[in-house]
């Protein structure tokens, strides 16, 4: 009898009962390494738009001009948190989880390259592509109607009645030439490659 009383006194405590009936864990929080919606890391955006080119979800990312300069903006409800924009950005403007840490440690990156193809049977040599190209506009501000210019540094120019791609490596992948071609003769392919620094050295 004495031992029963002892047990009741020892174990039937108020805290035990209150915990027994109201036990509940606080809702779990996302861990710090969770790849959440990308946020600005504070670095300067150079408006290369690789984030928008890499994004697989329609309408998820825009690069807007703000008083502080160009800024990428993520649209919740469209973004699928894949993190490709974070990896594709050459400047590390966006950050999410530990993507930037792991890409910095392993030396991995997503690199874009652009291939311009001109169909010689469709091309009429009108020069709209060469005149519209924003890279050409910087190199030769005096470029005339028709796209015939003697400057050797141009990306595109018209040579002997056909469009000629001179410096493909200067292409920024904006596809302005594609949109201005009346005959759908010129196409720009955006190639996205995953590269690792160690592999290139071998």
């Amino acid at each position: 009898m004495k031992s029963v009383l002892y047990y009741i006194k020892e174990f039937a405590r108020r805290e035990w009962f209150s915990k027994f009936f109201t036990a509940r864990t606080a809702p779990l929080e996302s861990p710090p390494y969770f790849r959440d919606f990308p946020v600005l890391s504070g670095k300067t955006c150079t408006h290369s738009l690789f984030c928008m080119m890499a994004c697989p979800a329609p309408g998820a990312i825009d690069v807007l001009r703000t008083p502080q300069g160009w800024q990428p903006r993520i649209h919740k409800g469209h973004c699928i948190r894949c993190g490709l924009c974070v990896e594709a950005c050459p400047n590390g403007v966006l950050t999410s989880g530990r993507i930037l840490d792991s890409t910095g440690r392993d030396g991995t990156a997503l690199s874009f390259s652009f291939k311009i193809r001109v169909d010689p049977e469709l091309c009429m040599g009108c020069g709209n592509c060469a005149v519209a190209c924003p890279v050409n506009k910087v190199i030769d501000t005096q470029m005339s109607h028709g796209g015939r210019a003697s400057n050797e540094g141009l990306l595109l120019r018209v040579n002997e009645g056909k469009c000629l791609v001179v410096h493909e490596e200067k292409c920024t992948g904006c596809k302005t030439c594609e949109h201005h071609c009346p005959n759908e003769a010129i196409t720009v392919a955006r190639l996205l490659e995953a590269v690792q620094a160690g592999e290139e050295m071998q």
Partner: peptide, 18 residues
């Protein structure tokens, strides 16, 4: 209310309901 994400975490769903 809407819970964005593709998919959202269970925690986010739970917090939205609560």
């Amino acid at each position: 209310a809407s819970v964005p994400g593709c998919p959202p975490r269970p925690t986010e769903i739970l917090n939205a309901v609560l």
